[in-house]
Computed example of a mutant assay.
Amino acid sequence: MAALALPWTTPEAPWLHVLPSESGLGAEPSADGGLVRVLDARRMETVAGLFNEFQRALKFPGYFGRNWDALDECVCDLEWLPASSYRIVIEAAPRLLDRDQAERPTFLSLMSDAGKAWASAPRGGRERPGRAIPFNTVLLGTSIDWCP
């Protein structure tokens, strides 16, 4: 009997996943040796805090412009962090952009679009290495009623 594939192990949609913190899932090491980065939403209650936490966790290059377009560019590139798959895990997700709530849809759309970009070969004029690469975002927490 084949093992059940967790939804963030494939490049197919959906690319956003919401799980209760106590599930014990999401932040486990990747079976394929892919990159798993855990970010803390308590440090991302504002847009500026979100940019800081992403820059820290994903080691964005010095040219990171600390705006939505720059975040999109960096999460869709990651050539400085090559991996067979990418999983961004956000702990305490109900606190995410708590002080900039109007920006939550922008963030969710950007992360979903990044998953779609990694699932397709061409992006930004570069070809992906011969196959789709899983890129998923996992939001951990209870009462995340603002995430579709």
Results as ranks from 00 to 15, higher is better:
Ala3Met: 12
Ala5Ile: 06
Leu6Tyr: 01
Thr9Ala: 03
Pro11Arg: 07
Ala13Tyr: 06
His17Ile: 08
Val18Gln: 08
Val18Pro: 06
Leu19Met: 09
Ser21Trp: 12
Glu22Cys: 05
Leu25Cys: 02
Pro29Leu: 10
Pro29Thr: 15
Ser30Met: 08
Ser30His: 05
Ser30Ile: 05
Asp32Tyr: 04
Gly34Thr: 04
Val38Cys: 02
Leu39Tyr: 00
Arg43Met: 03
Glu45Lys: 04
Thr46Val: 04
Ala48Asn: 03
Gly49Ala: 00
Leu50Arg: 01
Leu50Gly: 00
Asn52Pro: 01
Gln55Arg: 04
Gln55Ile: 01
Lys59Asp: 05
Phe60Arg: 03
Pro61Lys: 08
Gly62Tyr: 04
Tyr63Phe: 10
Gly65Val: 09
Arg66His: 04
Asn67Ser: 03
Trp68Ile: 14
Asp69Ile: 07
Asp69Gln: 08
Asp72Arg: 15
Glu73Ala: 13
Cys74Val: 11
Val75Arg: 08
Val75Leu: 12
Cys76His: 12
Asp77Trp: 12
Glu79Pro: 03
Pro82Gln: 09
Ala83Thr: 11
Ser84Tyr: 11
Ser85Gly: 11
Ser85Gln: 14
Tyr86Gln: 15
Arg87Cys: 07
Arg87Phe: 06
Ile88Arg: 03
Val89Ile: 13
Val89Cys: 11
Leu96Pro: 10
Leu97His: 07
Arg99His: 10
Arg99Cys: 10
Gln101Leu: 15
Ala102Phe: 15
Glu103His: 14
Phe107Leu: 15
Leu108Arg: 12
Leu108Ala: 07
Ser109Ile: 11
Leu110Gln: 06
Met111Asp: 05
Ser112Gly: 13
Ala114Phe: 08
Ala117Met: 14
Trp118Pro: 11
Pro122Ile: 13
Gly124Met: 06
Gly124Trp: 09
Gly125Thr: 11
Gly125Asp: 07
Glu127Ala: 11
Arg128Gln: 10
Arg128Thr: 14
Gly130Met: 08
Arg131Asn: 06
Arg131Tyr: 02
Ala132Gly: 06
Asn136His: 15
Leu140Asp: 05
Gly141Pro: 10
Thr142Glu: 13
Thr142Leu: 09
Ile144Val: 13
Ile144Glu: 09
Ile144Gln: 12
Asp145His: 10
Trp146Arg: 15
Cys147Thr: 14
Pro148Met: 13
